[in-house]
């Protein structure tokens, strides 16, 4: 009885989470332009989507910005984490607190503050300001993922490498970097995800010709009827599903091998 009710409860919550998405996907095959009348099956919206230059351009923009911003954020953040790790306690905690600001700040405040900065410095809003803004909100995630790895690392590893004949550069790239690699990778992946997904901060820092995908989606949803949005949602959903499935199957297998079942 208890088991049954908890299963029912989980089914209800997951239903709540997924039904809206399934409605979008079903509607993407609906021949009618209306969101609520079913008139027949069609692939038209997918064809229209792939011929829609605005969407394709903004997709390219989104990917370019995400890659540039997260690569720079990862390098900047990893170097910063190593530097911060070696600082004295007071400066360290001050810098970490400031680093947390973009994460705890409401996104709208970060967006507005960056917009003020760019207007103040007379930089035209465009791809450049988008990249700068995206780096700014990605770096903290890199730092906060790399710092714990540095704390876990054995402090004497570096000295050992030097004793065994490495020069400082070799010790850094052959010993320290591999040790903190998992943190760097997580930071990079988080950066790329947040950058692709970001709407609010991009909304305040983009120019007329530098739309990212979320901004294009926003302008599409403002029109009453835009069935291409449904087709786009369906594609995004399937892509994310496949990526997550691959990641999780690998993780569960790794977990089974370790024996944490």
């Amino acid at each position: 009885m208890k088991k049954l009710s908890s299963k029912l409860y989980m089914a209800l919550v997951f239903g709540f989470l997924y039904i809206p998405i399934f409605v979008l996907i079903i509607n993407s095959f609906n021949a009618s332009k209306s969101r609520t009348v079913w008139t027949g099956f069609t692939f038209d919206w997918y064809k229209k989507l792939f011929n829609n230059e605005v969407i394709l351009n903004s997709l390219v923009n989104t990917l370019i910005i995400a890659v540039i911003a997260s690569v720079i954020a990862t390098i900047l953040g990893t170097a910063a984490a190593i530097g911060i790790f070696n600082m004295k306690r007071m400066t360290k905690s001050l810098i970490i607190n400031i680093t947390y600001l973009p994460i705890i700040n409401p996104e709208i405040v970060t967006g507005v503050s960056l917009m003020l900065l760019f207007v103040f410095l007379n930089i035209d809003l465009g791809v450049v300001t988008l990249v700068l803004a995206h780096i700014t909100f990605c770096v903290p995630y890199v730092i906060l993922n790399v710092l714990p790895k540095l704390h876990q690392m054995n402090r004497h590893l570096y000295e050992a490498a030097m004793d065994l004949g490495c020069n400082p550069m070799q010790a850094f790239f052959k010993v320290i970097i591999p040790e903190i690699m998992p943190g760097i990778i997580t930071g990079f992946l988080m950066s790329i995800t947040y950058s692709i997904d970001d709407f609010v901060i991009s909304y305040f820092t983009h120019g007329a010709t530098s739309q990212t995908l979320p901004i294009t989606i926003f302008s599409m949803t403002r029109r009453k009827v835009s069935p291409e949005v449904n087709a786009l949602s369906a594609i995004i959903f399937v892509v994310i599903l496949v990526v997550l499935l691959i990641m999780n199957i690998r993780e569960i297998r790794a977990g089974k091998e370790r024996g944490d079942v």
Binding site: V23, F218, T221, S233
Partner: peptide, 9 residues
């Protein structure tokens, strides 16, 4: 999924 799409749903 982008929150705009979820809200649109």
């Amino acid at each position: 999924m982008n929150f705009l799409l979820r809200t649109y749903a």
